[in-house]
Design a binder for these strands. Structure first.
Lengths: 209, 209
DNA sequence: CTACTGTATATATATACAGTAG
DNA sequence: CTACTGTATATATATACAGTAG
């Protein structure tokens, strides 16, 4: 099967470029006459032939009989694909669902490319228990939402329905130990009777001024 | 002078919402008939009156006699206004200009709202001399480009035409001291004969997984 | 085939005008 | 004023058709 893009002529390329520019500028495609005017073609029929050729070659489509009905074949928007819009989750009181809309303080955009793990939301760090990992009070931690975590990973977890905590996870048999990394902070040992949930993995960090 | 937005009626609001949705979906505004169809109005004249009212109230404009000629008054795109596209500056060899295009490794997007100081570019941190400030090897530091820095601020600077360094700045008379914050790293004292430049202020930090 | 000219026409669609109703 | 109906018409514009030229 040939999927190679069919070659367009120089003239067709100019026509396509003009259409692109006008859609960009006006939000509406030009008429055949306007295209002709721009390229010095006095006959709309000649323009129509170019446009039809471009259609046959898959570069655009024509809405039949519709004025200014040229549509560019949409290339996937690089902005949309690349840029994440992450909700910043506010304080979470006991038992409250994580993604209730009232808890989204605001949304921040950031390039997908920054992260290895795809982040799903941000949480604001409270306290300095993870300074040794470069996670400081006030930082926004990007969390990849998953309940699965391996020994030694930095996780976002909730203990006893309480608010979020960012800690390094250690399994000790069926016990869980959450390890801070800062002088004066002690490990949290979670016994099996306690309410405990891993919300996700540390995926990155954002810090403002 | 009144700049208050003139109140629109419920019906007009519905019309406007539909136009907005169609432009969003199709990239072209609907015809009067299509609007009528959607809102259960059998007469295009009635629709035209609504559209004219919206025009009088400054919510849209009409390209006269043009098919699908309704144009929304463009509100400044929140995406454009809010989202920065920061160049990530690569290694800088001696004497090389900071913004030569070859030195831009890639661009990352991030919300303006994250930062207090507007960042102009990103630099990748090499080494752990600023661990105590939560700036780790491999982090991307956002820099607000300015040659002016006050005593005690974290700056991006270049010493002896060499590569970037992120340090806390201290003035000692006309001497400059660049202070790391990590065990085993010593202050850099810059004497007045040395080539030295403050490139900008620490504006924030991005870290991937 | 590509690249045009020039004419005639069908179609989509805005727009004006005369009403009705609350 | 707002919110419609219903008709007639002007306008913008795509499209078909018959050519010419390299």
């Amino acid at each position: 099967m040939r999927t190679m893009t069919i070659q367009i002529t120089q003239r067709q390329s100019n026509v396509l470029a003009f259409i692109r520019a006008r859609i960009e500028r006006d939000g509406q495609s030009p008429t055949l006459e306007e295209i002709g005017e721009a390229l010095g073609i006095d006959s709309v029929s000649a323009v129509l032939k170019h446009v039809r050729s471009l259609e046959a070659k898959g570069r655009l489509t024509l809405e039949p009989h519709r004025a200014r009905g040229i549509r560019l074949v949409r290339e996937p928007d690089p902005m949309d694909a690349d840029t994440l819009e992450l909700p910043l989750i506010g304080r979470i009181a006991a038992g409250e669902p994580l993604f209730s809309e009232v808890r989204v303080d605001r949304r921040l955009r950031v390039s997908r490319a920054l992260f290895r793990l795809r982040p799903d939301y941000l949480v604001k760090v409270v306290g300095d228990s993870m300074r040794g990992e470069g996670i400081f009070d006030g930082d926004l931690v990007a969390v990849h939402a998953t309940p699965v975590a391996r020994h030694g990973q930095v996780v976002a977890a909730r203990v006893g329905g309480d608010r979020f905590t960012i800690k390094r996870l250690y399994w000790k048999g069926d016990m869980v130990r959450l390890l801070p990394n800062s002088p004066g902070f002690r490990p949290i040992d979670v016994d099996p009777t306690e309410d405990f949930a891993i919300e996700g993995l540390f995926a990155g960090l954002l810090r403002g001024s």
